[in-house]
Structure formats: C-alpha cells, structure tokens
Measured scan of single mutants.
Amino acid sequence: REWTEQETLLLLEALEMYKDDWNKVSEHVGSRTQDECILHFLR
C-alpha cells in the first residue's frame, strides 16, 4: 500500500531525531514496520 503524506513526514521527522535507529523510527511512524521504513527511505 502507498505511503501517505503524513507517514512520509513522520518518517523524515523520525530520521532527524533518531538517525538510523530503525526501531525508534518505525515506532514514531506507528503504522509501518522497520522494513517498510527502510525500503521507503531507500527510494
């Protein structure tokens, strides 16, 4: 499923705060797994 604008904003926000702590990043996004966050980030 597609990422919403809100999810993408949360991802970018989390990356600024937590860098590459993907566990914390995915918790911050809330609706995505670590793997989904990493894959989206790599696009």
Rank of each mutant, 00 (worst) to 15 (best):
R1D: 14
R1C: 14
R1S: 14
R1Q: 15
R1N: 14
R1Y: 11
R1A: 14
R1L: 12
R1E: 14
E2S: 15
E2N: 14
E2K: 15
E2V: 14
E2H: 14
E2D: 15
W3N: 07
W3A: 02
W3H: 09
W3R: 04
W3G: 04
W3M: 07
W3V: 07
T4V: 02
T4H: 05
T4P: 02
T4F: 05
T4A: 05
T4K: 13
T4S: 11
T4D: 02
T4Y: 06
T4I: 11
T4M: 13
T4N: 13
T4W: 02
T4E: 09
E5A: 07
E5Y: 12
E5N: 05
E5S: 03
E5M: 09
E5L: 04
E5I: 07
E5T: 10
E5F: 05
Q6W: 09
Q6I: 09
Q6M: 13
Q6K: 08
Q6S: 10
Q6G: 10
Q6E: 03
Q6D: 08
Q6T: 07
Q6H: 06
Q6A: 12
Q6R: 10
E7T: 01
E7W: 00
E7K: 00
E7G: 01
E7I: 02
E7H: 01
E7S: 00
T8I: 11
T8Q: 14
T8P: 00
T8L: 10
T8F: 07
T8V: 10
L9T: 14
L9N: 12
L9Y: 10
L9A: 13
L9E: 10
L9Q: 14
L9V: 10
L9W: 08
L9P: 05
L10H: 08
L10N: 07
L10T: 07
L10W: 05
L10F: 06
L10A: 04
L10M: 11
L11Y: 05
L11I: 02
L11S: 01
L11R: 02
L11H: 03
L11Q: 02
L11W: 02
L11P: 00
L11T: 04
L12K: 13
L12S: 08
L12C: 05
L12W: 08
E13I: 01
E13M: 07
E13Y: 02
E13D: 07
E13T: 07
E13K: 09
E13W: 02
E13R: 07
E13G: 07
E13N: 04
E13V: 03
E13P: 00
E13L: 02
A14Q: 01
A14G: 12
A14P: 00
A14M: 00
A14L: 01
L15M: 15
L15F: 07
L15C: 12
L15N: 10
L15K: 15
L15G: 09
L15E: 14
L15Q: 14
L15Y: 14
L15S: 13
L15D: 14
E16Y: 02
E16F: 04
E16S: 06
E16V: 03
E16T: 09
E16A: 10
E16L: 01
E16Q: 07
E16G: 08
M17P: 03
M17I: 09
M17E: 12
M17L: 11
M17T: 09
M17C: 06
M17N: 11
M17K: 12
M17R: 12
M17S: 08
M17Y: 09
Y18I: 08
Y18E: 07
Y18T: 04
Y18N: 10
Y18W: 08
Y18H: 12
Y18R: 02
Y18V: 04
Y18C: 03
K19M: 05
K19T: 10
K19E: 10
K19H: 06
K19F: 08
K19L: 03
K19P: 09
K19S: 06
D20A: 07
D20S: 11
D20C: 08
D20L: 03
D20G: 10
D20P: 11
D20K: 11
D20F: 05
D20T: 04
D21V: 03
D21S: 09
D21Y: 02
D21T: 05
D21M: 01
D21K: 09
D21P: 00
D21C: 10
D21H: 04
W22F: 04
W22S: 00
W22A: 01
W22K: 04
W22G: 02
W22E: 01
W22P: 01
W22L: 02
W22D: 05
W22I: 02
W22N: 01
W22V: 03
N23A: 13
N23E: 12
N23Q: 09
N23G: 12
N23T: 11
N23V: 11
N23M: 11
N23D: 12
N23P: 13
K24D: 04
K24W: 05
K24V: 04
K24G: 12
K24H: 08
K24P: 03
K24Y: 08
K24N: 03
K24S: 09
V25Y: 01
V25T: 11
V25D: 03
V25F: 05
V25H: 02
V25E: 00
V25M: 11
V25P: 01
S26K: 13
S26M: 13
S26E: 12
S26L: 06
S26F: 01
S26D: 04
S26I: 03
S26W: 03
S26Y: 06
E27P: 02
E27L: 03
E27I: 06
E27R: 10
E27T: 08
E27H: 04
E27V: 03
E27S: 07
H28G: 05
H28A: 04
H28M: 05
H28L: 04
H28W: 08
H28F: 04
H28D: 00
H28R: 06
H28Q: 06
H28T: 06
H28Y: 07
H28E: 01
H28P: 00
V29Q: 02
V29R: 00
V29F: 02
V29E: 01
V29H: 00
V29I: 00
V29L: 09
V29M: 12
G30I: 08
G30M: 05
G30Y: 08
G30C: 09
G30V: 10
G30F: 05
G30L: 02
G30Q: 02
G30A: 09
S31P: 04
S31N: 11
S31W: 10
S31F: 04
S31V: 07
S31L: 03
S31A: 10
S31Y: 10
S31Q: 13
R32D: 00
R32P: 00
R32G: 01
R32A: 03
R32Q: 05
R32K: 13
R32F: 04
R32M: 07
T33A: 11
T33L: 10
T33N: 13
T33S: 08
T33C: 09
T33F: 02
Q34K: 14
Q34D: 09
Q34F: 09
Q34V: 10
Q34S: 11
Q34T: 13
Q34Y: 11
Q34N: 11
Q34G: 11
Q34M: 06
Q34I: 09
D35P: 12
D35Q: 15
D35N: 14
D35G: 11
D35L: 06
D35Y: 03
D35I: 04
D35F: 06
D35W: 05
D35E: 09
D35K: 11
D35H: 12
D35T: 07
D35S: 12
E36M: 00
E36P: 01
E36H: 07
E36W: 00
E36N: 02
E36Q: 12
E36A: 03
E36R: 00
E36S: 06
C37D: 03
C37S: 04
C37V: 08
C37R: 02
C37L: 00
C37W: 00
C37M: 00
C37A: 05
I38F: 10
I38C: 13
I38Q: 12
I38M: 13
I38K: 15
I38S: 14
I38W: 06
I38G: 15
I38D: 10
I38N: 14
I38E: 15
L39I: 07
L39G: 13
L39F: 10
L39N: 10
L39P: 06
L39S: 12
L39R: 12
L39H: 13
L39M: 13
H40T: 06
H40S: 04
H40W: 08
H40V: 04
H40K: 13
H40I: 04
H40C: 05
H40Q: 09
H40M: 08
H40L: 04
F41A: 13
F41R: 15
F41H: 15
F41P: 15
F41L: 03
F41T: 11
F41Q: 15
F41Y: 13
F41G: 15
F41M: 11
L42S: 15
L42D: 15
L42I: 15
L42F: 13
L42Q: 15
L42P: 13
L42K: 15
L42C: 11
L42Y: 13
L42W: 11
